[in-house]
Design a protein around this nucleic acid. Structure first.
Lengths: 242, 242
DNA sequence: GCAAGTTGTCTATTATCATAGACAACTCGA
DNA sequence: TCGAGTTGTCTATGATAATAGACAACTTGC
């Protein structure tokens, strides 16, 4: 095979879409802002206008931009402002931003508590834990993946309950937990791994925010502990002094 | 446009090539080792054999693998063993590995010395510096990009000299520097940025090794200072105790 | 109202991607 | 020497990507 003419293997429209998305992620285009016209984008990337339309269609499909006929194409997504306080509820935070929160079960299983998890949950090492892996979205945009651990004895069949409730708050309500609060939150950053990248619709190498948190009931009894991985470009944490 | 049928925008052969390359980078296939047959790879990725051949051709073009008719396809590249010692010459190190060193000027310009650069080079802040951006390859594989700064007064027209010499050693010889040695080396790691990724033929998000180094002449006088970004998967540094 | 500029939709053409099958050319071990 | 297994090359076909042009539908500002 003559390799002179080999291409990059990445479709042009995808390169354009990635470029625009990076522009949004890096803040060159902000929420509500009008993108350059299709013709102008086409000139910038030196591609046909139809190729640009394909790129924009892909972005619109994911809810990142919205086209208005006769007017222009606008950046749809603001970074989700995510306040960190003692009463932190994903669904409430997303809803407050006028967006529709969604939860989606990826996987549920049982596993014995490691020493670390046991300590966080106030259980003994080796105690049976339910492990729930869930994807959380705002409108159609994946925001974070969380791995949640909770006592399998106190919350039997938690995986199936979450699968139908699609919300950690509702799951806890199902077991009679009327209220709970955030006891601890720890934030770090990392590079997304391949699995999470696919689920969060991120390209490899993008940064993620890793949040380890534990929720307790009103008596201070640990209920659940989580490790959440947020698409850094779609969220900003607001630390509020309580 | 119906977005039901939108593809990933990344060609199948590219996905296969990336997969195999990752296998090499992560050590699942080591240098000299025979890859699975084209049919077997095709089954693994569930694609046509011709698609696999396209992927292998792309890898062969970059010198990562070598096909032997009737026998198999073999991993060609070992990681470049890069010893760090006081006499560190890219061309010598690559040549010692039986590979052909190449240098390629990307950009040359002049800029005033920042405080930091001035200190490294023993100059005053604001002194005119030549800034040379170069790509270095072993055979056809890009190994590193270095940004080199040196005094524009002591080395006038350094950019053009490098462009024809294609080697920092030859450039220095041109100005009468008979010998030089590495005075300091500092190594860190990072994620490749978009510009370097394209030049190093890396996918975004891959790790790079960042090496800041300063070379001095036999009198200990600083000559050049560099920041080199190595494709982490193509090189391994060997620190030698002197 | 109108003109300029925008997105939406249609047809058409060419190049590339991916699959499929067949067979040649070659290597290697039994 | 032979046969199994490998890569190399050819033809062929359908799907997808990308370009090109034209015009409709719509928004905005003058």
């Amino acid at each position: 095979m003559n390799m002179q003419d080999i291409s990059s293997g990445v479709a042009l429209w995808r390169q354009v879409a990635d470029g625009i998305e990076r522009g949004i992620a890096e803040g060159r285009f902000t929420a509500g802002e009008k993108l350059p016209g299709e013709m102008e984008i086409a000139e910038t990337y030196r591609v046909n206008r139809h190729t640009v339309r394909r790129a924009l269609a892909a972005l619109a499909e994911r809810g990142l931009v919205r086209a208005e006929r006769g007017s222009g194409t606008y950046v749809e997504t603001a970074r989700l402002a995510y306040p960190l306080r003692s009463r932190t509820r994903f669904s409430e935070i997303v809803g407050a931003g006028g967006r529709e929160p969604r939860g989606q079960l990826i996987d549920a299983s049982e596993e014995p508590a490691t020493r670390e998890l046991a300590q966080l949950l106030g259980l003994k090492t080796g105690a049976p834990l339910a492990r729930i892996e869930a994807l959380r979205l705002a409108d159609r945009a994946p925001v974070c993946i969380s791995t949640t651990w909770l006592s399998a004895e106190r919350f039997p069949d938690a995986g199936n309950v979450f699968a139908s409730a699609r919300s950690m708050t509702k799951l806890l309500t199902h077991y009679g937990v009327r209220d709970y609060r955030r006891a601890s939150t720890r934030i770090t950053a990392a590079i997304v791994d391949a699995t999470d990248a696919a689920r969060l619709d991120l390209t490899l190498g993008r940064p993620i925010l890793v949040v380890d948190s534990t929720d307790v009931d009103n008596d201070g009894q640990p209920l659940v502990t989580k490790r959440s991985r947020f698409a850094a470009e779609r969220v900003e944490f607001l630390v509020e002094n309580v």
